[in-house]
């Protein structure tokens, strides 16, 4: 599998993405500077990494969404190519209108870093096919703007079409406002577009894939991608 990791000024999880996809999964993983206009040939997955692209100026992800490379990321997505956005990457995909909604300031106003639990809502996607619906896994979050928001009509549509992929939950998989760290509507931690090829999530699965670093809760996402992409 060939993976492209767009790197913006202020990206700081690009090396986590490169480590997870390249070193741990053994995929051909290529960092791509934001000023490039073309993804590497035969790119199968674009991993938009976390960080503080362009210093979070204006709104998180707003400037990065206009970066030259994003036009080709959009073309890749329009052709059915896989796109995974984590943390700031999720914010960028929302600002680029590849995903609906927006990520507001956390309800607490604080930057939150914590290990949290997610419940898998859908296991029929390239990002989740190696997991089971209802399965719970532990991953870290590290963000100040993860409070997912959508106007009520669009939120109903998103839920009705099964657009919610990951929800914050208790270690046993219970859903409820007290298990939502940031105030996100309906406890939404990750969503997918209608076509099912663009996924954005606030938590960081790429940080928990290497047993040498103490936890492997995020492997399900990467094993799913490995299964989904033929020839890996």
């Amino acid at each position: 599998m060939r993976v492209a990791v767009p790197v913006f000024p202020g990206s700081n999880c690009d090396h986590d993405a490169l480590h997870a996809c390249g070193t741990v999964m053994g995929w051909d993983t290529i960092p791509v500077w934001h000023r490039e206009t073309r993804l590497p040939a035969d790119t199968e997955l674009v991993f938009v990494p976390g960080g503080f692209s362009y210093g979070d100026y204006l709104r998180c992800g707003a400037i990065a969404a206009l970066a030259p490379i994003m036009a080709d990321v959009r073309r890749h997505a329009d052709n059915g190519g896989l796109v995974l956005g984590v943390c700031n990457g999720f914010q960028i995909l929302c600002e680029a209108h590849l995903l609906p909604g927006a990520l507001l300031r956390n309800e607490s106003l604080r930057f939150i870093h914590a290990d949290i639990h997610l419940r898998v809502e859908r296991s029929d996607l390239p990002f989740t096919r190696a997991m089971k619906a209802g399965e719970v896994f532990q991953v870290p979050i590290a963000h100040a703007e993860g409070n997912f928001t959508l106007d009520p009509a669009d939120l109903s549509d998103l839920e009705a079409r099964g657009g919610v992929v990951f929800r914050y939950c208790s270690p046993k998989g219970q859903i409820g406002a007290n298990h939502v760290p940031n105030g996100a509507m309906n406890g939404i931690a990750g969503i997918v577009n209608v076509r099912g090829n663009v996924l954005g999530m606030m938590p960081h699965p790429e940080r928990v894939v290497d047993p040498r670093l103490g936890a492997t809760g995020g492997l399900g996402v990467f094993r799913s991608l490995a299964e989904a992409v033929v020839g890996t």
Partner: peptide, 8 residues
């Protein structure tokens, strides 16, 4: 185009 995110 840029200055306003109509979602919020």
């Amino acid at each position: 185009k840029l200055l306003v995110n109509p979602v919020m």
